[in-house]
C-alpha cells in the first residue's frame, strides 16, 4: 500500500509518499492558503513518483493546518508524527528536538517510537524559525547568510527571548557598532538557550534527533549541540520528518 503524509506547517508544507520506503517527497511554501499548499505538495509528490492519486491508500495530515483538508483519512498531531519519523530514520532516537516555523518541541520517545513525554514552547515566537527569520531580517541577511557569518564568531549577548524585544536589542547592538557576525552568533545562542530550557522540562536521554526546517541551518545545530553538551543527529532532510511520520502512521494503520 502507498501511504501519504502531509505536514502543513506555518511556513512550509511537506509531503511524503511511503510504501515501505520513501517513494517521493515535496516541499512547498504554505503561504496564506494552508489547504491549497497541502494539495499542491501532495500533487507534486505524486508527479515526482509518477503515481496516480487513486493509487494512494491512506492520506494522513499533520501540522497546524491539518484541520483544513478534506483529503485526509486521518489527522495526527505533529508531536506523534515527529516521534515516528525520527524513530524510523534512526531507531536509537530517544529524544526528538523539533523546531518549526512557529513552535518548538522536545519529545521523549521509547524504543518503539512512541511518545513518552513532550514539552512545547509558549504561545510566542521565542526559540522558533520565526524568531530566526525576524532577526535575519533586522540584519538584512538571508537565513543562509545569517548562518555563514555566525560561524566562529564570539556570540554577542542577546537576552530577550521575545522576537519583538530581541529586535530592538539587535538594533541597539548595531548602533553600538557590534560586529554582525557576533550578533548572528548571539541569535543562534539565544535559540539554543531557549531550547535547553525546554529540554529541561522532559527527561532528555539517548540519541537526539533534530527535526524541522530550522535544523537545515548548520549554525543552529552547532549552537544547540554545544549548549546541550551532546551530539545531535540531523537527518538528511529534517523538514520532512513530520510528513514522513504521518505517512508511517498511514502505512502502519
Amino acid at each position: 500500500m502507498i501511504a501519504a503524509g502531509i505536514d502543513i506547517g506555518s511556513t512550509g508544507t511537506k509531503a511524503v509518499l511511503f510504501d515501505g520506503e520513501i517513494r517521493a517527497t515535496a516541499v512547498v511554501p504554505t503561504g496564506w492558503d494552508p489547504a491549497g499548499a497541502g494539495l499542491a505538495a501532495f500533487r507534486q509528490a505524486l508527479d515526482a513518483a509518477g503515481i496516480a492519486e487513486e493509487a494512494v491508500g491512506r492520506v494522513v495530515g499533520t501540522g497546524y493546518g491539518r484541520v483544513s483538508l478534506p483529503l485526509f483519512d486521518k489527522k495526527v498531531t505533529e508531536i506523534t508524527c515527529h516521534a515516528r519519523g525520527a524513530h524510523f530514520l534512526h531507531p536509537e532516537t530517544r529524544t526528538v528536538l523539533d523546531i518549526g516555523g512557529q513552535d518548538s518541541k522536545v519529545i521523549s520517545v521509547d524504543a518503539g517510537g512512541k511518545v513518552v513525554e513532550f514539552a512545547m514552547n509558549d504561545k510566542c515566537a521565542a526559540g522558533t524559525g520565526r524568531f530566526l527569520q525576524v532577526m535575519a531580517g533586522v540584519l538584512g541577511l538571508s537565513l543562509e547568510e545569517l548562518g555563514l557569518i555566525a560561524a566562529g564568531a564570539e556570540p554577542a549577548r542577546i537576552s530577550s527571548m521575545c522576537a519583538v524585544f530581541a529586535e530592538s536589542e539587535i538594533i541597539g547592538l548595531l548602533a553600538q557598532g557590534v560586529d554582525k557576525g557576533r550578533i548572528a552568533a548571539g541569535v543562534f545562542h539565544a535559540i539554543a538557550t531557549r531550547v535547553q530550557g525546554l529540554a529541561g522540562k522532559v527527561s532528555v536521554s539517548g540519541d537526539i534527533t533534530f527535526s524541522g526546517g530550522v535544523a537545515l541551518n548548520p549554525a543552529i545545530c552547532r549552537a544547540i549541540g554545544s549548549g546541550l553538551a551532546v551530539e545531535i543527529r540531523v537527518p538528511a532532510a529534517p523538514q520532512l520528518v513530520g510528513a514522513l511520520g504521518a505517512a508511517l502512521v498511514g502505512y502502519e494503520a
Partner: peptide, 12 residues
C-alpha cells in the same frame, strides 16, 4: 496551541 498539546497527550 492547547489543542496540539492536548491532542498529542491523548494520542500518547
Amino acid at each position: 496551541q492547547l489543542r496540539v498539546r492536548i491532542e498529542a497527550f491523548l494520542e500518547m
